[in-house]
Design a protein around this nucleic acid. Sequence first.
DNA 1: TTCCAGGTGGCAT
DNA 2: ATGCCACATGGA
Length: 284
Amino acid sequence: MIDLKKTFTCGQCFRWVEEPDGSWTGVVNGKIYNLKKDGEKIVDTISGQVITGQDLHGASTSDLYDYLDIGTDYDAINSYLAGRDEVIKSAIAEGDGIHILRQDFWETLVSFIISQNNNIPRIMGCIENLAALAGEYIGTYDGPMMNEEASALAETLAHSAKRYYSLPTPEKLANLTVSDLAPVRLGYRAPYLIAAAQQFLENPDRELIDFTGVGPKVANCVELFGKHDLDSFPVDVWVKRVMNRLYGIPEEDMKAMHRFAEEHFSPYGGIAQQYLFYYVREQG
DNA sequence: TTCCAGGTGGCAT
DNA sequence: ATGCCACATGGA
């Protein structure tokens, strides 16, 4: 069963926000969703649509069935990985319920260019700023229904509906300047993003590593999160740390990290990586 | 104040 | 092919 909190906070996506009632609000494919666990089901409280709850292997039944990757048998993958060694087995015990989302390629590329040498709260801020500045307006959402006491309080606080935007298209971004983007607070990444948008328009299928602002790590993230290549193994500072601590691999030896992942976790290196990332960030 | 964050581009070897 | 280093920004 997918765990929304783990899935949305494990560093693969940056636009889902937890509401006071524990539900999650986000934007996917130009629509606003508020997802909540209801017994054994995941429900979108805005449309009332049941997202999951039917047979895991059944036909696609909802808007977010593919996005949430409900059709992949994570229990089987977890059993396979847990059998590889005791370390990944305990990481899986912590991270059970994480799914690798099927995110839009372009939005994933933008998000992970922004992510470089940056921290997750600020990445989220930059992406929201970018959407508000240059994205398309989708609509407003007041937040989930509250009980009477809470909603009375909210009214006295003059609580207003939040506006939601999609991320800008490559066409839009390619025609902006660095000074246009100044309010987004991207720092030195702003020109990277504009160049990448222009390159995407020229040839969307170019090698990821050839986009400006994309090196090996960002390329691996985009392959994993934006192309659902489950064997891609991104190594950032956190994964370096955890691979060193748990498997004794020297932190500077990237080749050894990738070799280890290939030998131990293939063909699910990317999923193993998410468990390790979640594990080290939870435990510290 | 310095250090750090889901690193990469540019330049010198 | 590899090794340095500068690069904006904001929170700890």
